[in-house]
Amino acid sequence: MPLLEITGLTKRFGGLQALSNFSFSMGERELVGLIGPNGAGKTTVFNIVSGFYRPTEGSIVFRRQLLNGLKPHRVTSMGMARTFQNIRLWNDLTVLDNIRLARYARLDYGFWDAVLRTGRYRRAEKAVETKAREVLELMELAEYAGEFPKNLPYGLQRRVELARALAGNPRLLLLDEPAAGLGSVDVEGLIRHIRWIYDEFKISIWMIEHQMKVVMSLCQRLSVMDFGCAIAEGTPEEIRRNPEVVRAYLGDGAL
């Protein structure tokens, strides 16, 4: 039984066909890449899977449950997490609070517990705090717990966003161009980090990435999109040699 199964996904924005009949499937403990030229529809796929857009046609099944039409926070609570192409952190909350909020969907207390500071509230907050500190520790961010994300360098902000995504204990992590805007040293660090996350947290990762170095060295399998369609799928080696992919995306002299 695959972890995520997408069948015949189609999305039209008015007259624009952003995605046509896209199918994809991935199992547990896989690290898969999604590549394609700009505007190919990669982020649209992520936005539909994570619940921001409703698909025009097709179905998404995640852990045996149909995701079509579920709101993003419901999808998240089913065990999916994602990061964004442009970092979306809460800049006026501390790094620690950013991570704590990732546990929001699992809070088992309500308004009155918070206001009356009940035992249930204390227990839940303690658990959230422990978990958040643990994640920060694992991601080597502990020393920045009290900082505001806006004051951190770009590479660290990326790492905080990654930590926040992991804090919700996802089974599947969607990374939307995690290397965007990083320098070559940071990219090396990111590759190590992602591999380490994949091993340490025992999760599946599906990533969109433009930098060939990242996908080629990380992914076991790649799918390629162009103009809203999947045009190829295979191991990095196969993709590298696929003439159609080379033409559509990599360019003639790319590799």
Binding site: S50, F52, K71, P72, H73, T76, S77, A81, R82, F84, R88, L89, W90, N91, D92, L93, D97, R100, L101, A102, R103, Y104, A105, R106, L107, Y109, G110, F111, D113, A114, Y121, A124, E125, V128, R164, A165, G168
Partner: peptide, 25 residues
């Protein structure tokens, strides 16, 4: 000061991130 209430700040500062991180906006 509770994580529950900080959902309000999260919605204020980045609603998209709030929704995706599991906050029922």
């Amino acid at each position: 000061t509770s994580t529950y209430g900080k959902g309000i700040s999260a919605v204020c500062q980045n609603e998209v991130a709030a929704e995706i991180m599991g906050v029922d906006t």
